[in-house]
Design a protein around this nucleic acid. Structure first.
Length: 124
RNA sequence: UUGGCUAUUCGCUCUAUCGCUAUUCCGCUUUUGUGGAAGAGAGGAAAGUCGGGACAACGCAGGACGCCAUACUUCCUAACAGGAAGGUAUUUCGUGCAAACGGAAUAACAGCUAGUGCAACAGAAAGUAUUCCGCCUAAGAUUGUUUUCGAACAGUACGGUAAGGGUGAAAUCGUGGAGUAAGAGCCCACGCCUGUUUAUGCGAAUAAACUUGAGGUAAACCUUAUGGGUUGUAAGACCAAAUAUACCGGGAAUUUUUUGCUUCGGCAAGAAUAGAGGCUUGUCCGGCCAAUCCCGGAGGGUAGGUUGCUAGAGCUUCGGAGCGAUUCGUAGCCCAGAUAAAUGAUAGAGGUUCUACUUAGUAGAAAACAGAAUCCCGCUUAUAGAAUAGCCAAAAAU
RNA sequence: UGACCCAUGGUGUAACUGGCAACACGUUUGAUUUUGGUUCAAAAGAGUCCAGGUUCGAGCCCUGGUGGGUCAA
């Protein structure tokens, strides 16, 4: 099922700081992706957060909309990555930062999301 | 009919699939987790944080001052810098010969007759008025001439004069008359304005009579009246986990210490508790502040959860009170509660507006401002488009 | 979420208690020099973030907005 529960989201201050400090990153315009691989220690295999900067988008409406679109795209396309990580018995923290300066269409976001998910699964 | 302004109301709807957030019910397992079902899930401004409350914590009691806010009147409200009704002033439109009346808009609309201050440049003078130009020579002063030695005539300003000129944003009430040497609210009439009294009105005020003649500026200091303690839900309360012992509060018991004498029980003298200093809402008054033991809190560390948290100055219907803001009663309803941040995506149908084709259908396009974070009441700002009412303007028809 | 501050030539700052918006650097032109720099002489460049109001007169006072920044954790 294409669910997206709270456990799959990254919401601890400590782990987020750890991720940005010691995680690796790559660009895939309009996204910048941070990730950190570790051994499996919890029930879930991935935890992700989406971020849109206040500098690019001043209005809260735009930021909310972008985050929702990104989350929707991830929810519908994440199954392949999770499967692969589960086989290897690992855990991955991911942070996706939106770097672009205009709001793209949903289809465009979906394509880019697929790309970076493929990249991540190849790393695993 | 079109356009503008003001006020009020609304600000896309429905269906399917896949999700997210909490709630209720059922099943399985049962600390909890998991599966299914049901109905619910951003706004008129959620924004700005500009007023005002609710709620909470804090101060060692209390008082004075300071500071801040408000400012025509009455009413409404939990309260307000909000609203309603009314008054006054200004602007504007209409009617009218005019006086005036009516409509609309705007107003930080208490007090310079409480005190202090300020007014560049220009100008004589910017505030107890004053003589730069001008005007006058009546009285007094002074110069000259004449002289019947009483004075007369002609000048003058160091005399009189604020009517006129010029300067300025502003020049000591305005217009007309009387008056005078020339002039002046010096006097008179009308007007404006200040105060008092009377009448009407709850009141702001209005009207009449008498009186006064006094420049502007309070979004200058200030005065008067009224109100305000300060800080804010990241306030605060609780649980779990964690635990060296600085510091603080409360209670208990005593005074303590130095030197000298001693019969070792005490006695005598001095010092400390005074002052200074510190703490206490912005200041002052005022208040509190030595050491030992016990109890409690707190610091450090760990950084999670619960609560506060959403049933309320709540919404809707009907009826009453009031010009109105608003309020009273009755019946019904439950309407977001997230926490690195839920309220979304896709597809289809319909409605609205615009454009094109063409003549009532087809095709295409568009849909603003904007996202809860303790909650309410207002204000301000942003806003595609739609509806209703009033006013204004233009055009057309009758 | 709450509290608060600032905005003036291209840049950095002034402007007392409302009265001609000033200074430095930079820019341009000329002189000096074989040329450049230094130095000297001159010139241009703003109407004070925006919109209203008070006032005879606002950079300054008042109101509303815009943009930027600071603090509390």
């Amino acid at each position: 099922m294409n669910t997206f529960k709270k456990e799959e989201r990254l919401n601890s201050k400590k782990t987020i700081q750890c991720l940005f400090a010691s995680g690796k990153s790559f660009f895939n315009y309009p996204f910048k992706v941070y990730y950190l691989l570790s051994d499996a220690n919890s029930s879930t295999s991935t935890a992700i957060l989406f971020s849109v900067g206040k500098r690019q988008f001043k209005k809260a409406v735009d930021r909310n909309k972008l985050k929702r679109l990104c989350r929707e795209a991830y929810r519908l396309n994440k199954s392949a990555l999770i499967k692969k990580i589960k086989e290897k018995e690992k855990h991955m923290d991911i942070a996706v930062v939106f770097v672009g300066k205009s709001i793209p269409e949903y289809k465009e976001i979906e394509q880019k999301t697929k790309k970076y998910l493929e990249h991540l699964s190849s790393i695993v």
